[in-house]
């Protein structure tokens, strides 16, 4: 038993425990928890998307909520207006968001740091304006309804049922994102974040990888948007403003920039937190801004950075020692 625990490692144990809670305990909690659970998982998908672009490839993006908006409106449009099956509309929405990520990637190629932040902020305002100015497709400022889909003749109007759909998709997203970031692509992203010039000399096609990061990130955010529209049943431009983008940034900063697990933890924690502290509801942006500042200044690696310190004590691993007797750090 103990040996089994050791092979899975602390992160494995925590993940499995969380998954068991997410699957088994959820039905016994109130329907309110089913609803918040859906939102938490959707936020996690969006945070994973942002984490690929900002955390891994190191490109500042303030328009994650715009990609979410594109996915949300496209999914709703294809499903309700064109009558395409929901399970096809959802990926179409995500692909459209990815296409926008591709287009935005080109001007972004030549920009870095502050300029990139400014351009992505501009893109965010542009999407907001387009949503408001194209009411035929988007419903304008009044918003648009988005009904729940059918799964084999069974309408997913129950929050718990749709929660399990979102959970399944989230697990797929987590799995693909983790594999992606461990693959040569992920390592190329890391190299670009650390030093673009060095990455280029190592033969990494920097331009292509950056565009790839934009496309992947937009795809995940678009998927989150499509699920969001269906989960909530109603979307309007206010949902996809700068505040939402900043909240996604907060998720990854609190969870740990660059870590998929951290993104999920940050998103889930910070979706449930304001619900538990109801009295803060009115001061949402204020509290979130405060959390973000404290995190940035006191723990730049987020919760994922704290984990090794905590588990290192509870879970001492046999240390690898090199020829000179110094401890070799495991690659996280």
């Amino acid at each position: 038993m103990f040996r089994l625990l050791r092979t899975i490692g602390p992160v494995g144990v925590i993940s499995i425990a969380t998954l068991v809670i997410a699957i088994v305990v959820q039905p016994w909690l109130g329907s309110y928890f089913h609803y918040i659970g859906m939102l938490a998982l959707i936020n996690a998908i969006a945070a994973i998307g942002l984490n690929i672009l900002t955390g891994s490839a190191g490109q500042i993006s303030l328009c994650n909520s715009s990609f979410m908006a594109i996915g949300a409106y496209a999914t709703t449009y294809f499903y309700t207006q064109l009558g395409i099956v929901y399970w096809l509309s959802l990926p179409i929405g995500a692909i459209l968001a990815a296409a926008c990520g591709f287009i935005l990637g080109f001007p972004a190629l030549r920009l870095r740091g502050f300029y990139l932040a400014v351009v992505t902020l501009g893109f965010l305002e542009l999407t907001q304006v387009l949503i408001e100015q194209l009411p035929d497709i988007t419903g304008g400022v009044r918003g648009i309804g988005s009904p729940r889909p059918y799964l084999f003749q069974y309408k997913l109007s129950n929050d718990l049922a749709f929660y399990y759909v979102v959970l399944a998709i989230t697990l797929v997203v987590i799995f693909t994102a983790v594999s992606l970031l461990r693959s040569p692509t992920g390592r190329a992203f890391n190299a670009i974040r650390n030093n673009e010039a060095v990455a280029q000399t190592l033969g990494i096609p920097v331009a292509r990888m950056k565009i790839q990061a934009f496309v992947l990130s937009a795809f995940y955010a678009g998927l989150a948007g499509g699920l969001y529209s269906t989960a909530v049943g109603f979307i309007d431009p206010l949902e996809f403003g700068l505040g939402t983008s900043v909240r996604h940034v907060i998720y990854i900063v609190v969870g740990g920039v660059g870590s998929v697990g951290g993104s999920v933890v940050g998103a889930v924690l910070l979706t449930f937190l304001p619900e538990l502290l109801r009295s803060f509801k009115e001061y949402n942006d204020f509290v979130f801004g405060g959390i973000l500042l404290v995190c940035l200044l006191t723990m730049p690696k987020g919760l994922a950075g704290l984990l090794p310190k905590v588990t290192g004590r509870l879970w001492p691993r046999s240390k690898a020692v090199d020829a000179l007797g110094t401890t070799v750090k495991a690659v996280p």
Binding site: T54, G58, I60, L62, G113, F114, A117, L242, G243, V246, V249, I250, V253, E282, Y283, N284, D285, F286, F288, G289, G290, L292, L293, L296, L297, P300
Partner: peptide, 28 residues
């Protein structure tokens, strides 16, 4: 001043956060 030597990402996010906080405080 604490941000002067921080990475650009930190500067962008921290100033944005303070901006949101000011906006929210005024709204309240």
């Amino acid at each position: 001043r604490p941000l002067m030597r921080a990475p650009e990402f930190t500067v962008v996010v921290a100033t944005l956060a303070v901006g949101l906080m000011i906006k929210d405080a005024l709204r309240i």
